[in-house]
């Protein structure tokens, strides 16, 4: 799968939420190249988060093909899809990214507990790598604090460290900056882009704020891509 040229490949995908009357998402074709930094824009309710759930293998489309890192997700069972996500994808959400009862360091280490692959890649250096990432993101003094003690901006940076730990091939960020003020927003995006570049990860960044698009290689408007009226 490492040889695949594209990080994400969607074809003829149609997705409908279980109790919804109409599909929320219909995408004819979407390709994200390896190492690409893609910005997906769309207003609230346009299906951005839904798309990310499909690529993450959490939600399955009723139709179409979803290929991530050369792996057709239809070929995987539910447990295998969860394992695949743990092994290859790092997620960052808008808010409340952290497990409230774990320390910052334990939050960052969480992916290693669910992914043997990422733990294996780091060998015994998991702790050191977590601390290195935290230091890089300006959080070295916070590592033993309980997650909820941190400011929102700090929490987002912890989530960033967690997503990057073990250098997964794909980083998916779902409006990670919408809770931050303008200054913090720009700083956070620069940090995220730099870390992704350092790790060689593909970045899929989703937001309703089109003003952020200029940080990225390419941008897509989900309203145009999505064949469903929203």
């Amino acid at each position: 799968m490492n040889s695949a040229a594209s990080a994400v490949q969607l074809e003829e995908v149609v997705f409908r939420w279980p109790r919804a009357r109409q599909p929320s998402l219909a995408i004819e074709q979407l390709t994200i190249k390896r190492g690409e930094r893609l910005f997906v824009r769309g207003p609230s309710g346009s299906g951005k988060s839904t798309l990310l759930g499909i690529i993450g293998g959490v939600n399955q489309p009723q139709q179409g093909r979803v290929e991530v890192l050369g792996q057709d997700l239809r070929d995987l069972g539910t447990a295998a899809r969860d394992r695949f996500r743990a092994d290859h994808i790092g997620f960052i959400f808008q808010l409340f990214n952290l497990i409230p009862y774990l320390t910052v360091r334990e939050n960052v280490l969480l992916p290693l507990r669910f992914s043997r692959r990422r733990a294996g890649l780091l060998g015994g250096r998991g702790q050191a790598e977590a601390l290195r990432l935290l230091a890089h993101l300006g959080l070295e003094t916070m590592s033993e604090r309980i997650a909820t003690d941190l400011s929102v901006g700090q929490q987002q940076r912890v989530a960033c460290a967690r997503a990057l730990l073990g250098a997964p091939e794909l980083i998916i960020a779902d409006e990670p900056t919408s809770a931050l003020d303008a200054d913090a927003r720009g700083a956070f995006i620069d940090l995220l882009l730099a870390e992704c570049a350092a790790a060689g990860s593909t970045l899929l960044f989703v937001s309703h704020d089109g003003g952020l698009a200029n940080h990225f290689d390419r941008q897509i408007d989900l309203c145009q891509l999505n064949g469903c009226p929203t």
């Binding site: 969860d82 394992r83 743990a86 669910f114």
Partner: peptide, 16 residues
């Protein structure tokens, strides 16, 4: 619920 969603994101199965 948020905690569960985060755990799912880092790779937890519903069974977990």
């Amino acid at each position: 619920r948020r905690e569960m969603a985060v755990l799912r994101a880092v790779g937890a199965q519903p069974l977990h």
